[in-house]
């Protein structure tokens, strides 16, 4: 499991599937999830479980649903206090998610 070497800033709370996770102001959402042992963030009918791979926005495998937005790259966004995250489910059968 990923562990943090120092505590860089003030503590905030975000929610993964309603479970509270401690995070730090300014931390990447994907980094928070990995520190809490959440490796799989996204599930597709044709791809199975996936999680952060490149951490720089090119692989699109760390997709999560954030508040009301679907299929957001968790490595590209910063954690905000109270943010609600859910596993991104793609049941369309192809890699293209049909966003609302």
């Amino acid at each position: 499991m990923f562990r943090q070497l120092d505590t860089p800033s003030s503590e905030i709370t975000i929610f993964w599937e309603d479970r509270p996770l401690s995070a730090y102001q300014g931390e990447l959402v994907a980094a928070v999830l990995l520190r809490h042992g959440i490796h799989s963030t996204h599930h597709g009918q044709s791809t199975g479980s996936r999680g952060p791979y490149c951490m720089m926005g090119v692989c699109f495998d760390c997709l999560v649903d954030v508040d009301n937005q679907k299929a957001i790259q968790a490595c590209q966004i910063i954690a905000n206090d109270g943010m609600r995250l859910n596993r991104h489910m793609n049941m369309a059968g192809t890699g293209h998610t049909h966003d609302a």
């Binding site: 499991m1 990923f2 562990r3 943090q4 070497l5 120092d6 860089p8 730090y24 931390e27 990447l28 980094a31 990995l34 520190r35 490796h39 799989s40 963030t41 791809t47 199975g48 479980s49 996936r50 999680g51 952060p52 791979y53 490149c54 951490m55 720089m56 495998d61 490595c75």
Partner: peptide, 24 residues
């Protein structure tokens, strides 16, 4: 290589720089 938990070395380094975190 598609399995969760497999990442790039650059991703591991990004986590060090951006979040000062790493995995034992």
């Amino acid at each position: 290589w598609h399995l969760p938990g497999v990442m790039t070395v650059g991703a591991a380094q990004t986590l060090l720089k951006a979040s000062s975190s790493g995995a034992d």
